[in-house]
Design a protein around this nucleic acid. Structure first.
Lengths: 203, 203
DNA sequence: TTGACAAGTGACCTATCGTTCGCTATAATA
DNA sequence: TATTATAGCGAACGATAGGTCACTTGTCAA
């Protein structure tokens, strides 16, 4: 029951911090959403800042566990259509999963106020995706599916626009459908530009 | 003298809002930075929220004036090297101009809290750049400098990664030099991929 | 059965927030 | 010169923030 309440506070903190920011969130409202009074919070956390730090600990640990090691890398697609399909699946999940959305919003809002949020934001929004697709594109080049090129550059050129559209969905959820269509169109355009069709000769 | 103080308050508000957010900024500190006491602010603005709204008015007007009409479009480059050079110049300015940096940070931080900030953020970070380069790439295709392709798609594929690196500079200024190098490398890679070298035949 | 501990409550504290008000000094206007 | 509007000041306001504390309740182990 104790663990439970502590976890519920962290969940609600993520929700409110990501909407109103750290400064805009107050303990009374946060605990009231859980059916508690504010003083009860202090049985589980030393302070408001302690909630923030615990939340960030959790986010950092989660990221390290799910995206930090080579074991968690997705499989290299066997076809160009496979790349598009994988991209769309990943995009769909990341755009619709409420927890992931809130994490992204929180990092966006607090990146200039907290050092660890800053670092995690860069991983989430930039280097994490680039690293992942660098590996994927290396594999696809070895399979003869992609033009020989700098895999890291291609990964950056591929993920950054998609990341921009994901941010657009966070900002203006009503544009989600349009954004997903645009991600699909972009992915297909990328495949047309850098992909190697089976049967075509290439040097 | 009155106009002056009012402007100085708006300037300082941009500075502090962009660092600490609207909620994290307090009137006492803001006015103290200008050598005033907090009550003096109310001679120029009705409330803290009035400062915020005036600041946003100003930002929206500035954007409309400088990027809103077709008159402000940059000239279409005459060569592929010209595209790279123009890109680097624009990137350098936008990454080093303090006012522009603060504007971007402010929109990033407050985009989920204010409707107008949300709209302006999308223009600043996404559609504004895409529109500008759609026009540029159309012109370059007509000049035979770029492969025939969907100019809007190319503009999106070109500007989104650069925008991501600009955001990186806002977040981690110590990576500015690396980011500028990466923008250059990306731009040159783009030119190699989609550009048409003079003398080369193309269908 | 009893003692210890964890979890929640409500009253209360202090600090700080945005805001208001009455006052003064200055500078332009009549 | 007398008047008036402006801009700044300092004290004070009510509201609300984060945080503390004594107390109650329920649970489980000795």
């Amino acid at each position: 029951m104790a663990r439970d309440t502590k976890e519920r506070i962290l969940d609600e903190a993520l929700r409110q911090f990501s909407q109103k920011g750290y400064d805009g969130t107050n303990i009374r409202e946060l605990t009231a959403s859980l059916g508690l009074v504010k003083s009860s919070m202090y049985k589980h956390f030393k302070s408001k800042e302690d909630i923030w730090n615990s939340l960030l600990d959790k986010m950092i640990a989660y990221y390290a566990e799910h995206f930090g090691s080579a074991e968690n890398l997705p499989p290299v697609p066997d076809s160009l259509e496979g790349l598009v399909a994988m991209t769309m699946k990943m995009a769909y999940v990341t755009i619709h999963d409420e927890m992931i959305i809130m994490t992204r919003k929180l990092l966006t809002i607090e990146q200039f106020r907290d050092e660890r949020a800053r670092e995690l934001a860069t991983k989430h929004f930039l280097t994490g995706l680039t690293d992942m697709f660098t590996h994927i594109f290396e594999g696809m080049m070895n399979k003869g599916l992609l033009r020989r090129d700098d895999p890291e550059m291609l990964a950056f050129a591929y993920t950054a626009p998609i990341s921009a559209l994901i941010h657009l969905c966070d900002r203006e959820p009503e544009k989600t459908d349009a954004a997903i269509s645009q991600i699909k169109a972009f992915s297909e355009h990328f495949v047309l530009t850098f992909g190697i069709r089976n049967g075509g000769e290439q040097l």
